[in-house]
């Protein structure tokens, strides 16, 4: 399955997770010449409600735009897991923040626990960098995209003046998962 990759980013509205999906897609398109689609789910109450964005990447044009076999999922809220924890491949890499997500199917998936929120809070001081820390962690846990492509895409999408802290946040996430074991 090296030519096809599916990722899901699930959280609650307002955590800026939709942006993470955009950056992954941007990385694939602009820095690896691949195709990508990105479909956000709009729930009736966008702020505070469970929300997700799905990204599909392929070396060829993508026809069906919904995920059917997810390779990687990031989840930052229990209620988002409960609602969107489906369509995952067996063995799917699942990254959760243990302070926010407590119950996932350990048997089926490779579950990695990283205190993303705590890490962002202590090292970055600003919660807007949650996405960048998450992306760094994702880059460290998956090998479909070159971490450098994700880094470049983040740099490209970062609001003017926030490039440096975003890079720093990315590296924090990337380093933090290096010795992380699943389970």
């Amino acid at each position: 399955m090296s030519d096809h990759f599916e990722a899901r980013f699930a959280a609650v509205g307002g955590q800026g997770i939709l942006l993470a999906g955009d950056i992954i897609a941007e990385a694939a398109i602009s820095f690896e010449g691949k195709y990508a689609v990105d479909s956000p789910t709009y729930t009736a109450q966008v702020r505070g409600g469970p929300t997700k964005v799905d990204v599909i990447i392929n070396t060829k044009r993508i026809e069906f735009t919904r995920t059917t076999a997810i390779d990687f999922m990031l989840c930052l809220a229990q209620k988002s897991w409960d609602r969107f924890g489906f369509d995952l491949k067996d063995n799917c890499t699942v990254l959760i923040d243990p302070s926010l997500v407590h119950e996932v199917d350990e048997e089926k998936y490779k579950v990695y626990r990283l205190p993303i929120i705590e890490l962002t809070k202590t090292k970055m001081k600003k919660m807007v960098y949650t996405s960048a820390v998450s992306l760094g962690a994702m880059a460290g846990l998956t090998n479909y995209l070159n971490p450098e492509s994700i880094r470049k895409a983040l740099l490209k999408k970062a609001p003017r003046g926030t490039e440096e802290p975003n890079m720093q946040a990315f590296d924090i996430g990337f380093e933090a998962v290096k010795d992380l074991r699943h389970g």
């Binding site: 897609a25 398109i29 990508a36 689609v37 990105d38 479909s39 993508i62 735009t65």
Partner: peptide, 9 residues
């Protein structure tokens, strides 16, 4: 709605 909200290349 899918096409309206979907992003692609």
């Amino acid at each position: 709605e899918v096409l309206g909200h979907l992003s692609e290349r």
